Simulated assay, not measured.
Amino acid sequence: MLNAVIDPLYRFPVFRTSNPEELRHFGSTLFGAAGIDLRSLDGFEARVNLVKLQETGLAFGATTADLAIDNLAADFIRLQIAHRGHATTSVEGRTTDISDQQFAITPAGCRSRRVCEAGQSD
């Protein structure tokens, strides 16, 4: 994985693991993930940086595995901006690509599914 110094929000690390089950637990308790599916687990690593501001939270996450996350509806808006790689977000039957050219927004109160390729980070 990349050197942490070049990760966005590197001064605010909250989670590092090489255990897929720890990632599943962390994703459900902190980010409201209903399920996390992982593929390509050889040399698996995942990391999350998070800074909480007065009314906003900014998070950066990266993993070495292909990842699919089913998120429960939340009382906040999710804005996903790719730092590297490609992902998709699906909300209410509409799928949006996430890349260096396109971001995605999940409105509050909506379930979503995000699918990320290995090495993608946002």
Rank of each mutant, 00 (worst) to 15 (best):
S121Q: 05
Q80T: 06
Q80F: 15
S18A: 02
V48I: 13
R94G: 01
A74H: 13
V14W: 01
R11V: 09
G43P: 03
E21W: 00
S18D: 09
A68N: 06
P20I: 02
T89A: 15
A4H: 15
E22L: 07
Q54V: 11
V91S: 01
G27Q: 15
E21A: 11
R39N: 13
G93Q: 09
A62G: 13
G61W: 05
A65W: 02
T106P: 03
G93V: 09
S40P: 01
N3Y: 04
F60I: 01
Q54F: 12
L58A: 07
D66C: 09
R113Q: 12
D75W: 01
A74Q: 15
A87D: 00
N71V: 07
A33P: 00
Q102D: 03
I77Q: 14
R78V: 06
V5E: 14
V5D: 15
G93M: 10
V91F: 02
T88R: 15
N19Y: 03
N3I: 08
R78G: 04
G61C: 03
G35Y: 03
D42H: 02
L53G: 10
A4P: 08
R94F: 05
P13A: 00
E45N: 05
D66K: 01
R39L: 15
S90L: 10
F44C: 01
E22F: 04
